[in-house]
Nucleic acid binder design. Sequence first.
DNA 1: TTATAATATGAAACTGTATTCACATGAAAG
DNA 2: CTTTCATGTGAATACAGTTTCATATTATAA
Lengths: 204, 204
Amino acid sequence: MPKKTFFNLPKKKRDTITTVALDEFASYPFQQASVARIIKKSGIASGSFYQYFQDKLDLYRHLVDTFTNMKLERFAPLLSNSDNKNFFETFKDVYREGVKFARQNPKLQALAGHLYRDKELLAGQLNDIEPKALKFYGDMLKKGISRGDVRKDIDIELTSYFLFKLGSSVNEYIMIGGSLEKWDMKVVDRMIDFVQHGIGKKGG
Amino acid sequence: MPKKTFFNLPKKKRDTITTVALDEFASYPFQQASVARIIKKSGIASGSFYQYFQDKLDLYRHLVDTFTNMKLERFAPLLSNSDNKNFFETFKDVYREGVKFARQNPKLQALAGHLYRDKELLAGQLNDIEPKALKFYGDMLKKGISRGDVRKDIDIELTSYFLFKLGSSVNEYIMIGGSLEKWDMKVVDRMIDFVQHGIGKKGG
DNA sequence: TTATAATATGAAACTGTATTCACATGAAAG
DNA sequence: CTTTCATGTGAATACAGTTTCATATTATAA
């Protein structure tokens, strides 16, 4: 989080820095984004920058936080105005609103694009692993369909992607909770139940 | 990918570098991992390092690739020996095997832990956004349950997590395909169907 | 007004990765 | 043996983020 000196700044100066920074992070991925450039364009001293922010990451996170909070605030009304809609209709509304938001804020969208690619930089679809994992799940699904376990009207490619991401999130969920010692097959069981039956009420 | 000079190296030297590097990346997150230390411990010249690898990331990815390939190879037999098991039982086996693999390779597991945290470094549960997003989905689910749209025997916290991750993956899936212009609500529809009904064959 | 604290400044130094380079070594070919 | 080509070497340099610091400037309080 930025230091309190940043929030003590006159709004105009704060806005200048924020705007310049958003522009920088919308134009370059995190690593290539230059603190020196931000300092220059903002017209502040380099010493000042580090009196406002811990470091480059601190500023970046501040932007991402602000951006995500804005997005979440847009979603809130969907929930309170959803009396006549069921869960799944509201869920779809969330996405519609998300697309609208992205179209209205191209720089934030550009930043999000970099964010996504930056996350994948260390490991992800940019290397050759993800395709292999997707193929693995795809094969599993095909077998399941031919055995009759799995619905045959699903999109195999897309569903593989979902399973891959769900699998990763289970790993993460358990890692958050602690170490491998605490590994709990119950979480896996719940995930598989989620995948198998969904969360919709039967006949609902 | 490492340069061919690396693969031309005598196996022993190559293994030394790999072991030292694994040790480094298991001990420190990517940013803090030091090329200088790896060079020192491996007993190679700094000039040589850059004749073997593009840069630090190149070496890191090589390790992650190797590690993930090893893991995938362990999973392959599960698929071919699954004739008497349905999709969801095999799915569970994959996780059992994953845990075994992690226990047998603590350094790889440590590296994976850093990898996960590094990915979350830019944005994720380390900042204050994810809890808010999870709460949002949690509220949606509670409302769905009280309306009778959603099964009431689900784990709300865990399911919120799944929805959050699935949502992110939809965004990513569409971003891979191209720009926002190509945004296709059909992908969202399929995702919602996946969430609502699951992929298990009814009565299967 | 004066005292005290908070903030602003920008150059200089520091850190660690990335890159270059001239030269050394070694192996294989003729 | 010597030519040739690939590889090894480590010091030197470049580069960008970070840190420091002595010195202004501004704001608040007494």
